[in-house]
């Protein structure tokens, strides 16, 4: 015998009641989803809003150099934004990314799939708390405390070990560009890195130019010294030949002169 059905109205009213109960959870979930948005690490480029007042003007050269390094490596340090998507730190990087998107869209797409840019979202509103916003901006910029030339050279050595090459212009396929990588890593311009590394290479060359002749002279004098010493021991053998006897007479004097010159060079 078939089971007796409940009244159709009843089955609907319990559904409505459940919808009511789930609604509370829906609200909680929505709030949580919004909080989660604050923890995102990627944001669409068009959603990043510029500050209304820029504390320092952009340097077009720096923007282009950054664009070059970002084209090579992508964005290493995320842009810093507030919870309203307003930029706090990274105005040059943002300009460089925009520049890249306009000038070299393919390389842009390679690093920023779906136009998504790495960001760090700070949990405050810059409009409501401008002092904090300024602190973030300064702190971020202070991070690039000047690396000493030594430090830069050490970093360069490490990068070379990782197959980064010093090439002018765009690196070939499979090659990674050293200058831009280093520039991004320490927050200076590519040109500055190249300048520092260029001097590093130039120095040994300078030393060589001055020191090679002296070094060579010492080598020759040493050769002369040993040759003369040997000649000295051979004296007896060359009897009966006048020119050679005359030379043999000169050997002790020559040897003395060579040794004096050598010691002069070594002092």
């Amino acid at each position: 015998m078939p089971r007796k059905r409940r009244n159709a109205t009843d089955v609907f009213s319990s559904a409505v009641d459940t919808a009511e109960a789930i609604h509370q959870r829906d609200q909680v979930a929505e709030t949580k989803a919004q909080e989660d948005r604050g923890r995102r690490s990627l944001l669409a480029l068009k959603q990043i809003r510029k500050r209304e007042t820029d504390t320092r003007p952009l340097r077009p050269n720096h923007v282009e150099e950054l664009a070059e390094s970002i084209a090579a490596l992508g964005l290493i340090e995320p842009l810093v934004i507030d919870n309203q998507n307003v930029l706090l730190a990274g105005a040059h990087r943002l300009a460089a990314i925009t520049h890249l998107k306009e000038q070299r869209p393919e390389q842009f797409a390679e690093h920023f799939a779906d136009d998504l840019v790495p960001v760090r979202i700070m949990p405050f509103d810059a409009g409501a708390d401008p002092e904090k916003a300024l602190q973030v901006e300064l702190a971020e910029n202070e991070k690039r405390v000047n690396y000493s030339r030594d430090q830069i050279e050490k970093l360069a050595t490490r990068l070379r070990e990782l197959n980064y090459k010093e090439t002018r212009g765009r690196p070939k396929k499979g090659e990674k560009a050293l200058g831009p990588a280093l520039a991004v890593a320490i927050g200076v311009s590519t040109r500055y890195v190249r300048k520092v590394l260029g001097e590093e290479k130039a120095e040994p060359a300078k030393k060589n130019r001055n020191s090679v002749p002296i070094f060579r002279r010492r080598q020759l004098l040493k050769k002369m010294e040993s040759t003369l010493e040997e000649l000295n021991t051979l004296k007896q053998v060359s009897k009966g030949r006048e020119a050679n006897q005359e030379l043999d007479a000169l050997v002790p004097e020559l040897l003395k002169q060579v040794r004096t010159s050598l010691s002069e060079l070594e002092s």
């Binding site: 559904a15 409505v16 919808a19 009511e20 789930i22 609604h23 829906d26 609200q27």
Partner: peptide
């Protein structure tokens, strides 16, 4: 169907909120 009514109810509640 009650399941559809439940879904619709949630939407209405959210739209109201």
């Amino acid at each position: 169907h009650p399941l559809a009514v439940m879904g619709a109810g949630r939407v209405i509640n959210e739209l109201d909120a």
